[in-house]
Amino acid sequence: PKDEAKKKVKEAIKRGDEETAKRIAKKYNLDWDDAKREADEER
């Protein structure tokens, strides 16, 4: 599900692992900028 994928993307971003985050986002066709902004807001 997309929500689960987005959570994984945000967790990867918070760990500083943007490569993984981008790969997950691409795989699930998520909006990378959107997920990154959300992760930054939660930090």
Rank of each mutant, 00 (worst) to 15 (best):
residue 28 Y to I: 02
residue 42 E to R: 04
residue 3 D to Q: 11
residue 12 A to E: 02
residue 40 D to A: 11
residue 36 K to P: 03
residue 40 D to H: 09
residue 18 E to H: 13
residue 4 E to V: 12
residue 21 A to K: 00
residue 26 K to R: 09
residue 25 A to V: 04
residue 4 E to R: 11
residue 31 D to L: 04
residue 7 K to T: 10
residue 15 R to P: 00
residue 37 R to S: 07
residue 39 A to T: 07
residue 16 G to E: 02
residue 42 E to C: 10
residue 6 K to A: 09
residue 14 K to M: 15
residue 42 E to N: 07
residue 32 W to T: 01
residue 23 R to C: 11
residue 23 R to E: 14
residue 24 I to F: 03
residue 29 N to R: 03
residue 30 L to V: 15
residue 13 I to A: 02
residue 18 E to I: 15
residue 39 A to V: 14
residue 5 A to E: 04
residue 30 L to N: 00
residue 5 A to D: 03
residue 10 K to S: 06
residue 27 K to A: 13
residue 34 D to R: 07
residue 7 K to C: 14
residue 12 A to G: 02
residue 32 W to R: 00
residue 20 T to W: 10
residue 16 G to Q: 02
residue 14 K to S: 09
residue 30 L to A: 02
residue 43 R to F: 13
residue 5 A to R: 03
residue 4 E to G: 07
residue 32 W to G: 01
residue 25 A to E: 02
residue 33 D to T: 09
residue 2 K to A: 12
residue 9 V to I: 14
residue 8 K to F: 11
residue 25 A to S: 04
residue 33 D to E: 14
residue 24 I to H: 01
residue 42 E to V: 06
residue 36 K to F: 10
residue 1 P to L: 14
residue 18 E to M: 15
residue 17 D to E: 05
residue 13 I to G: 00
residue 10 K to N: 06
residue 30 L to H: 01
residue 17 D to T: 00
residue 15 R to Y: 05
residue 2 K to H: 12
residue 41 E to A: 13
residue 22 K to Q: 08
residue 29 N to H: 10
residue 8 K to S: 08
residue 24 I to N: 01
residue 43 R to T: 13
residue 23 R to G: 07
residue 6 K to H: 07
residue 37 R to E: 05
residue 20 T to H: 09
residue 23 R to K: 14
residue 36 K to I: 13
residue 16 G to F: 03
residue 27 K to W: 13
residue 3 D to A: 12
residue 38 E to L: 06
residue 17 D to P: 00
residue 34 D to T: 13
residue 6 K to T: 06
residue 2 K to F: 14
residue 35 A to Q: 05
residue 33 D to S: 08
residue 10 K to H: 11
residue 42 E to G: 08
residue 20 T to P: 01
residue 30 L to M: 05
residue 16 G to P: 00
residue 29 N to M: 07
residue 37 R to V: 06
residue 2 K to G: 08
residue 42 E to F: 05
residue 12 A to F: 12
